[in-house]
């Protein structure tokens, strides 16, 4: 076979391989999703982060606006400090609430932001003070059993399940 023929097929092969890699990175991976452009950093302290992980999404009204960049334990406050990167396009008031929520009953946890009414916006490096910790299922079940035992006919778990969006 001619050398140019080899060159052609090998070129095609290499292009196919690189396209596969790029497709994996953008279509299957989070390379496309994580590029939120320029961003600013916000911190929040939680009593309990539950199963929240680094790179978990930060959502407002269900739309991804940022990512969790680090989670560490603050030994002074005895609280977990979560650092997030939020896209520059999204601005939130200072009295915004951050809660750790779960997508589905067994889904992954993410940080949900509920905008407040303050006219001053969060800046780079600011801390969100209004936070709601993750719901820990053992606590939930304990509460449910307690309610049952105290004779309450209404089950709180059904409403939680609905709220969880299952």
């Amino acid at each position: 076979m001619e050398r140019s023929t080899y060159d052609l097929w090998v070129g095609l092969f290499v292009v196919a391989g690189l396209v596969a890699l790029l497709a994996l990175a953008f279509k299957a991976g989070n390379l496309g999703a994580s590029s939120i452009g320029s961003s600013y950093v916000v911190k929040a302290n939680f009593d309990d982060v539950g199963g929240l992980k680094v790179r978990a999404p930060v959502k407002a009204s269900g739309v991804v606006v940022g990512r969790v960049t680090s989670i560490r334990f603050d030994p002074v406050r005895y609280q977990a400090q979560v650092t997030m990167k939020i896209g520059d396009a999204y601005r939130f008031p200072r009295d915004t609430t951050a809660s750790i929520l779960t997508s589905g009953l067994l889904g992954d946890q993410y940080v949900g932001l509920d905008a407040g009414g303050d006219s001053v916006m969060l800046k780079n490096g600011d801390t969100i003070h209004l936070t709601q910790s993750a719901i820990v299922i053992e606590k939930l079940i304990g509460q449910f059993l307690f309610n049952k035992a105290s004779g309450g006919g209404k089950s709180p778990s059904s409403s939680t399940a609905k709220a969880g969006g299952l």
């Binding site: 890699l21 994996l24 990175a25 279509k27 299957a28 991976g29 989070n30 390379l31 496309g32 999703a33 790179r55 999404p57 992954d108």
Partner: peptide, 15 residues
């Protein structure tokens, strides 16, 4: 299918 995949697959540690 795709969004869960994208949320979970990391370019560095998986791909």
């Amino acid at each position: 299918f795709w969004s869960q995949m994208q949320a979970q697959v990391s370019v560095r540690t998986d791909i």
